[in-house]
Design a protein around this nucleic acid. Structure first.
Lengths: 333, 333
DNA sequence: ACACGGGACTTTAACGATAAAGCAAAAGGA
DNA sequence: TCCTTTTGCTTTATCGTTAAAGTCCCGTGT
C-alpha cells in the first residue's frame, strides 16, 4: 500500500503537504500542488492509513457499540440506525456482542483507542463493569428506572407494557402468562413484568410465569420458546393461559409458531403480545401485537449525548433521558 | 489511558521490557520483573493500544468482511460463524455491508490496514472492483460457476436447487413460479433459477417468474415479498402457481405470510420452497422446505485459504473450492 | 529602500507500539 | 584465570500520520 511518503516523493513535496491536502486545511496548499498531489494519490491508489492517523491525532473517529446478540433482529435494527447516525457525524462503529448474556464481554473491543461507547445494559445488570475503567465516555441504553451516575438513554419499559396489559384487560382475556427471559433471575423487578403484574392485580386476574429452557446460546432462543408454545398447546384448554405476554418479539413469534404447531389459532385460542416492534413481527400473516421501542429516538438521544461529551468536552452532570414505548395493536391479541 | 511508557516508568524499566512481557517473548524478561510489570499494568489498567501495535508490527490481526445485509439472518449466521472461526485463529472481523445491492461499498472498510478480506459476491456481479486494488489477500464467497483468477469458496447453487425442483416434480406440483431478487437483471444466468428452469423443461411444466417491487432498501424486502404472496392469493385458483420457489428464505417466509394473509394454506393451496436454510425458517409452525447452505463449511474453507495466504505467504495459484447445498424437506412443499 | 505580513511550503517531534541491535553482568567451559 | 555464552535488559530506529513551529519568498505600504 502506498503511504503518504510515496505520494510526497512522487510529487516532490514534503509529507506534510500531502497531509494538508487530505485534511483540507484551507489555504495551506496552492491549487497547483494540490492538484498534483491528488493526481498522484489517485494514480498510486493512496488511502490514508486510519490507524496511523488515529495515533497521530489521538482520535479514532470510531465508537464502540455493545449489544447483546445479532440473532435478535431488534439489535440489528438498533445497529443499523446507530451506524447511520454515527456515519452522519463522521464516526464509525465497532461492534461487540456479549452473547453469553452474563454481561461479560468477549474483549473484542478492548485495546482499541475508541472515542466513545454505546452500551446496551440488560435490565437487572449493573451498568458498570462492562468495559472496565474507561477513559472514553460511555452512554448506556437500558431501563429508565436507574438513577446512577452514568449517561443513560432509558427506555420506559413500564408505560408501554402497561398499555398492552390494559389493552388485554379491555379485550377480556383472563388467565395470563408472562414469558420471562431465562437469564432474568430477578424478573420480579423487571419493568416489563411489573407492568403486567400490576395490571393483573388491579384487574384481579391470575398470571403465571413461564421460562424458556435454560440456555446460554442465543441461537436456541427461538427453538426454546417455540417449544413453550407447543407445551401450552398440549395443555387442556382450561389449564392453558388465554394470553401470553412475552419479553420480546422474537420470543413472541416463536411462541406463536409453537402454538400453531400444536394446532391452536392465534389469537382465537391463545393471544400473544410481544415487545420491541421488530419488522419481522409486523410482516407475519397476522401482524404481531406488541410494544414498540422507538429505535431512532434511542439512537439519536444516545449519540447526541455521546458526541457532546466527545466533541464539546461536555462535563455536565450525567444525563438521564427517557424515551417512551407505545402499544402497536396488531392482530395476535 | 495508560501507555507502555507509564508502566515502564512505574516499574523503573524500559518500554521494551514491558512490551516483551505483553508479547510473551520466552526468556526475555526475568520472572521478578515480569511480575512487577504485570502488577503495574493491572494497577494502572493498562491495555496495549491495538492501533499502535498494528502500526509497529505492520499487521493488524483484523480481517475485513463484506456482506450484503444484516437484515437477512443468513448473513448474520455467516458473520457469527466467521467471527468465531477467525477468533480461534487470533483475528478480529471488521464488517461492511453493501446495502444498496449495487455492489458499491460504503467505504467503511477503506483505509484500515487489514490483513485480509472475506467478500460475498452477489451472483451476476463482478468479483473485482469491490475493494479497489488491494494489496491484502481477498477470498470471495459466491457462485461456484466462476472460473476467474481469485480465491473463491463457491457455493454449488445448482445441485441443491435442482434437488428441490426434482422434489417438487415428485410431489406432483404443476404450475411453478420462481421468485427472483429484484436486482437480478440477468436472472436467466442465475444458477438457482437455471436449476428450476432446467427441471421445469425436462418435466414439461410451466414456470412463471415473479419479481418483488423494485427497492433499494433491504428493509423492504419482507414487505414486498409478502405483498407478492397476497397478490398470488388474490388470483383465481387456476391462474395461481401451485408452487413458488424463492431465491432465499427471507423472501420465502414473507411470501408464505402473504399467502396466509390472503387466506390460503401452505402447502395445501400453494407450496413454497426457499433457499439458505436459516434458523427462522426452521422455527416456523411448519418448517420451511428449503435448500441448506453449509455455512460452517463456507467459513472454514474461506478462512483456511485466507489465513494460508496471510500467514504462510502462500503464493499458490488461486484456489477454487466448491461446497455443496442440500435439500431440507420441510413442510411447506 | 526596507521592514512587514502573509502564502506556501518544510522541519521536527511526537503518537504508542515493535524489531533489531547493543550491552553489561552473570554463568559456564577449558 | 580468561574467554565465551547466555541472560536480562536498554537503545535506536521505525511504522504512517499529524500538530506545531520554522523557513523562505514575494508583494505591499511607506
Amino acid at each position: 500500500m502506498a503511504t503518504i511518503k510515496d505520494i510526497a516523493q512522487a510529487c516532490g513535496v514534503s509529507a506534510m503537504t500531502v497531509s494538508y491536502v487530505f485534511n483540507e486545511k484551507p489555504g495551506a496548499v496552492g491549487a497547483a500542488t494540490r492538484e498534483r498531489v491528488l493526481q498522484a494519490a489517485q494514480r498510486l491508489n493512496y488511502q490514508p492509513n486510519r490507524m496511523a492517523r488515529s495515533l497521530g491525532r489521538r482520535k479514532s473517529d470510531t465508537l464502540g457499540m455493545v449489544i447483546s446478540d445479532l440473532r435478535n433482529p431488534f439489535y440489528v435494527e438498533m445497529l443499523e440506525c446507530a451506524e447511520k447516525l454515527a456515519a452522519e457525524a463522521g464516526y464509525q462503529l465497532l461492534v461487540e456482542t456479549h452473547r453469553d448474556l452474563s454481561g461479560r464481554l468477549t474483549g473484542r473491543l478492548t485495546g482499541w483507542p475508541l472515542d466513545g461507547f454505546l452500551v446496551w445494559a440488560h435490565s437487572g445488570q449493573s451498568l458498570e463493569g462492562f468495559l472496565g475503567p474507561q477513559s472514553a465516555p460511555v452512554v448506556y441504553w437500558g431501563d429508565a428506572r436507574r438513577d446512577d451516575a452514568s449517561d443513560v438513554v432509558g427506555l420506559d419499559l413500564y408505560s408501554g407494557s402497561r398499555a398492552a396489559a390494559e389493552y388485554a384487560v379491555r379485550r377480556g382475556y383472563s388467565r395470563w402468562a408472562f414469558l420471562s427471559p431465562h437469564y432474568q433471575s430477578d424478573f420480579r423487578f423487571e419493568r416489563r413484568f411489573c407492568a403486567w403484574d400490576d395490571v393483573c392485580r388491579e384487574a384481579s386476574l391470575r398470571m403465571e410465569t413461564l421460562w424458556p429452557r435454560e440456555t446460554e446460546r442465543p441461537e436456541n432462543v427461538r427453538a426454546n420458546c417455540r417449544e413453550i408454545g407447543m407445551e401450552l398447546a398440549a395443555r387442556p384448554a382450561l389449564r392453558r393461559p388465554r394470553l401470553v405476554a412475552c419479553y420480546n418479539d422474537v420470543a413472541a413469534i416463536a411462541v406463536i409458531q409453537g402454538l400453531r404447531r400444536g394446532g391452536l389459532r392465534v389469537p382465537e385460542d391463545v393471544a400473544v403480545i410481544g415487545f420491541d416492534g421488530i419488522e419481522e413481527g409486523q410482516m407475519m400473516d397476522r401482524p404481531l401485537t406488541t410494544v414498540q421501542v422507538p429505535i431512532e429516538a434511542m439512537c439519536r438521544g444516545a449519540l447526541e449525548i455521546l458526541l457532546a461529551r466527545i466533541e464539546e468536552n461536555d462535563v455536565r452532570a450525567p444525563q438521564q433521558v427517557v424515551v417512551p414505548t407505545r402499544l402497536i395493536e396488531g392482530e395476535t391479541a
